[in-house]
């Protein structure tokens, strides 16, 4: 394919830059100071606080029962919500990018909705629906089904909040690639599934990885929405971010920062994978 979408990289030759050297240096300096103050410094603070009393205390804080239970819950939440949103994201992006149907724009808007809604509101929605005073709360209660202040509520809220990540990443990528390759596969006798797995999927592989890693980071790090539906029951409905807050409020700083450092590690890994995926997506778009 002859590169219908060309991504412009910023490899300017020296001649193209007309600003004097001191302007460039000032701009670079401001950017670096900003990065240092708002990103590097807090990250360093997290790790220095976490390891302040030595590695032994750090590990001890992580081995505490409530901490382990919060890590487990966070992993379960991510393990359920990320695959579901992966499935949903791929299907929605496929439908939007490769077909035209009535209500397409509405669907795109709805996918974006969680981005524009405050996480607290997202959590509150579930309390209003499934809570005891909510629409179907009494019925659920009568049948002994717990959603709010229990694991299902946390998973639902997380799914809602992380809903757009995969779809949002894939829609522009798939739209840029068009549907000619899929049509070519069909003409050549491939079935719908063969077309998807042999043609569509390889072309969006890195887009998926990018979307999943962001989705996962958000799923594990979500505070607001989960906080509303969780009920903060120690050892039961506390995820890692909620547990960090509890520890901090109890003046247990070392433990709080030790657990927080897990999320910081997650952020660093996410950043690394995301950067690689970005390069690959760029290649896939332009080739």
């Amino acid at each position: 394919m002859s590169a219908p979408v060309k991504i412009h990289t910023t490899h300017n030759s020296g001649r193209a830059q007309t600003e004097p050297a001191f302007v460039r240096w000032i701009l670079i300096f401001i950017a670096l100071v900003f990065l240092f103050l708002f990103l590097a410094l807090p990250l360093a603070a997290v790790f220095s606080q976490a390891f302040e009393k030595g590695l032994a205390v750090y590990l001890e804080a992580l081995r505490e029962a409530d901490t382990l239970s919060s890590i487990k819950l966070t992993l379960i939440t991510a393990a359920v919500s990320v695959p579901l949103n992966l499935f949903f994201g791929v299907t929605a992006a496929w439908a939007i990018a490769k077909f035209s149907f009535p209500g397409k724009n509405l669907l795109i808007t709805l996918i974006d909705l969680p981005f524009s809604v405050s996480p607290v509101i997202s959590g509150l929605i579930y309390v209003l629906i499934f809570g005891l005073q909510g629409w179907i709360g009494p019925w659920l209660n009568a049948h002994d089904i717990k959603i709010v202040f229990a694991v299902p509520g946390i998973i639902l809220a997380t799914i809602f909040v992380t809903f757009p990540f995969v779809a949002r990443e894939l829609i522009p990528l798939m739209e840029a690639q068009g549907k000619e390759e899929e049509e070519a596969a069909l003409v050549l006798g491939a079935t719908g599934l063969q077309t998807f797995f042999r043609v569509t999927l390889p072309n969006i592989k890195w887009g998926i990885i990018y979307g999943v890693i962001l989705c996962n980071a958000r799923a594990m790090g979500e505070f607001g929405a989960v906080s509303v539906v969780s009920g903060h029951i120690r050892g039961m409905t506390n995820t890692v971010p909620l547990h960090v807050e509890i520890l901090y409020n109890e003046y247990n700083y070392t433990a709080a920062f030790a657990v927080a450092s897990l999320l910081a590690f997650l952020a660093l890994i996410t950043l690394g994978v995301k950067t690689i995926a970005e390069w690959k997506v760029r290649d896939q778009m332009s080739s």
Binding site: M1, P4, E181, E183, V187, Q284
Partner: peptide
Amino acid sequence: HVRERRVGFVFQHYALFRHLTVFDNVAFG
């Protein structure tokens, strides 16, 4: 269905499978 018609179709922008080699492209069908 398009799959059953046994037509060869050459697209305006060729629509070659970008992740496959020339050999695998030709062998796809």
